[in-house]
Each structure stands twice: as structure tokens, then as C-alpha cells.
Design a binder for these strands. Sequence first.
DNA 1: GCCGTTTTCGGCCCGACTGTTTTCAGTCG
Length: 587
Amino acid sequence: MENADVARLLSETGDLLELTAGNAFKVRAYRQAAQVVDTLPNPVAELIRTGGLSEVPTIGPRIAEHIGEMLERGDFDEHERLAARVPAGVLPMLAVPGLGPKTTAALWKKLHVVGVAALEDACRSGRILDLPRMGRKRAESILEAIGGHLAREGRIPLHRAIAHAERFLDILRSVPGVVAAEAAGSVRRRRETVGDLDLLVATLDPDPVVRAFTKARDVATVLAKGPTRCTVRLKGGLQIDLRVVSPSSFGAALHYFTGSKTHNIALRTRAVRLGLKLNEYGVFDRRGRRLGGAREEDVFRAVGLPFIPAELREGAGEIEAAEKGRLPRLLEEEDLQGDLHVHSRASSDARSTLPELLAEGRRLGRGYLAITDHSRSRPLGLDDEHLARQAAAIRELDRRHGGRPRLLTGVEVDILRDGSLDLAPDALAGLDCVVASVHSHFKDSAARMTDRLATALRSGVVHVLGHPSGRQIGHRDAYGFDLARVLDAAREAGAALELNAQPDRLDLNDKNCRLAKEAGVPVAISSDAHLASQLANLRYGVFVARRGWLEKGDVLNTLPVAELRRRLGSRGARSSGKTRAHKGVTT
DNA sequence: GCCGTTTTCGGCCCGACTGTTTTCAGTCG
């Protein structure tokens, strides 16, 4: 059972408890625990083994017991007991926006409405009006919400959310009187997918801001509109929340609307303990005097903590780390010196020439680019001979142009089904950077896939394991494999794991980056560019790395070119020693 | 159900908007 499954059952228990009028704080306890489990980097099974589960905030003895039961048999008593009391169709009703636990429970208990279809009927027939505080307008908005709920395509990938946010921020910043405008919420925390956008504006004159916002291109519906809050839905279905505050509250509001919810509750609770009050307008003492709020730092200072970067605010240990002065110094995009996975036109699915890649690399300030085209298993991929010729041409071009970025020779060699590589070890041995990746047989068992990856790493010629999990966001799930074992193999081989920065890959993900760091395995953040313009995608990799608590020293391509060459070269020597030691196993 | 530099019991983050009311419950973030 994965953490996500455990989280789902805990969260569902919260829902069921709420529908059956359980203690509201108990409801919250289950939901908080679910949220925390979902963001834990380590599998809960491992935490139970090592006794670390009781260290996790929001997980007390009861919930720990429930989790133990879940791992043993896939469910737990409390959840089953509650589920037996609530018909299966009721939970999906709770997911309709605008329907909360009170209304859903009343629909089910008083009108015997069960299921979203039955809910729709009750709205159309007017039967729903029999409920207290239920009028025509609410019935209509529920109907509309059902339509949107069924049609909506869930969460959108981060890079698209950023594009929407930047367009709206441009509009908002151009309104006279606007002092600042920023994206908050999960976009600012750089989650890999985003449910809706949260935008924040600082001004003393809210009216023109709200007007410009609701009249912007692509706005389909205005869902709510007040002087400080306004919500719209775009034609594509994306919901955007705008908050407007005075400049003196901007920092407190930015902190508050950035979340996560778990992080906020923890910080507010901490404030209460210190005799303070924290809200989106500022920090206040017992007598209601305002202590600060213009800057986000004010909030942290008031509760005696150093500034916590937005990417860490998931309630997954950042507050404890801040207390102990153990916050990581997160990687910055400027720390990256180069790119270790770039395709040229020698790959059939890539478009840019070496000079085009050089020009764009120079524009972006990269110190080096490793040219890593596909091997022969892929359509028109390089065989030993072509690869040698290409490497010679790259060395020659690098000599001729001289400056930055330096060109490194390389290849993205396929890892075949049995874990062997698609090109001869001799052909790979002289290259600066060998990326090895899986591009086939994604459905093989986790055990087989783990062996396959570990075998490839033990070949002694691999520098970087490319897009290790194979997932493509919204398209293909990660294949199953045992990351801990692959990390062991990588550490022994002196190899790095890639954080592929293509916005639909982001692979390793944030949690796995954290595990790689714990395991002492370096991460290589690579664009996997198939077009010169995609070299800029490294920024998305940096976002994920920061969410994964990575620092400069955890990332291979923060090394300047000379040191990088030394490191890659010595890895070859060290791991070929290993290979000899295990001769017969790996070849 | 969780948690503790006020507490092992008794608290538990806080405010805005909507619709239905005529003072506020429900929902959301």
C-alpha cells in the first residue's frame, strides 16, 4: 500500500465522519494526517519498521494504529464501520463544489438523495427546495456546479498554470494604484500540478483592480465578487481567486494565501501559543496592536522562525527544521552551471542544430551542454560508428568555437529489457556523459524493472540514469520499481539520478529527490531539450529540486566544467573497479 | 484524534462571500 492510498483512506474517513456528524476536530485530525502522509518522502511502511512514524506531526497513536492495520489488510476498522453507515453514492456528492457536509447529509438523510445523478434530479424537480435555507439560486448554482464538476479536467500542469498567472499578473500590475501583484497558492509553492490559481494584489484602491480582473479576456463566469475577494472561471475551466489587500498587509496576505493549509494552521497555532494573532492582515499582539505584515518575513519573525521558502511549506517537517536552524539552503537556478541531457538533430525527434543549441546555451549563460542523442534502438538512433563520428565532430566544434558553453560528448543510451545497454561498452567509454534511460517495456513487473535499472547502473559506464520513473504527467504513470535499491546501485556505481526538467516529466519528483539526497546520491537536473528553446526548461527542474529540499551540493551540474569532467571521469574509473569486482554479474 | 515554555485535559486558525434570511449558517480557502 502506497502513501497515496493510506492518505486517501484517512481523508475519506474524515469525510465519512463529517457526514455522520462526528466531532469536527476529529474530522480535521484525519484530514491533516492524510495531507501529511501524502507529502511524506518515505513510505509509511518503512517509517513503521524504523519506528519513525510516531515522530511525524499530526500522527498520534490512534492513527498510527490505523495505518498499521491498513498496511496489513488494506483497510481499517474505523473506516469500515463508518463506510457501512453511509451509502456509496453520498461521498461523490460531497465533491461537488458548493456542497458541503451539512447540505450533503441533509440531502441524503431527509430527502434520500444518493448519488450525483439523483442530486441533479432533485435540483431540476425542485424537490431540493424542501431543505432549510435552500432557495432557487442555490439549486441553480448546484446544477451549474455539477455540470462543471463533471466536465472539468482536474488539475493543470505547473508550467501552464504559471503561464496563466503571468498573463493575469501583467493585467493586474498595469492597473493604476497597484503596488504589487504576485501569484500565491500552489503555483508559488511550485507543486507539479495546480488545481486553481491564487493571485494577490496590494493597492489602496480595489475597485479598478476587481473590474479589470473580471473583464479580462477568457473569463467565462464570475463566481464571487467582493471588495477584497473575487473568483472567476476561465473558458477552459480554470478557476482563479483574486485577493486584494492594502500594501501594509501584503506580506501577511502573501504568506497566508501561499499556504499550504497545514503549514498555515501550524504557524497560527504557534502564534496563539505566543499570545499573538496571525491573519491575512498582519501579526497582532494580545491588545490587538499590529506588529507587522507588510513583508512576509514579518510573519516568520513574529513567531520566532527564520524565513521558510514557499516550496517547503507543506507541513512536511519544515517548521521543525526551521526551529532547529536546519533549513536547507535551497538550490537557485543560477547555481546550475550546465546541462547534461540535450538532443540535437541527430535524434529523429529533435530539431535544433549544434550551432543553434550553442547560441541558445550562450544566451542562457550555460557553462556546458552535453549532447546526448538517442542510441540505435530508437528510430534512426546512433550506432557505435555514428556515435564515434558525432563525438569527433562535437570535439572539433567545441575546439573551434572555444568559449562558453563548452560542448561535451555524450549519448542517451537505451536500457534494454534485460538491463544491458544498447551500445557496446567500448563505444560509451570515451564519452564525457552517458545518460542511460528506459524507453520500452514499461509494464514489466516492479522486481524486473528494479533489476533492469540496477544492472544498467552496474555496467560501470553510466553517469546519469535518465528520467528514472518514466512517468509523463497526465499521460503515463511511473512504472513500478524499488527506488531504494536503485539508489543503492547508483551510489555504489558513483552515478547520478536525473531530474528531467521537461514540464510533463519532472522525474525524479520532489519526494524522490528528497530520498536521493538522504541516500547520498547526486541529482542531475537536465532539460532533455529536443529544441534549443527547451534549454530554458531547467527552471522547472529547479522548482522540483527546491520542493525536494535539494541544495547546491546535492546537484551534479552545479559543478563548473573542469570539476565536472574530473567527477565524471573518476566515476568511470571507480565504478569500472566495481564492475571488475562483480564480473559476470553485469555483462 | 492530536497536542503541550500556561495544560496529560481541554482546547483546537481565521476571515470573506453567498443566499437566505432579518441575524446567520454554510462553504470555501
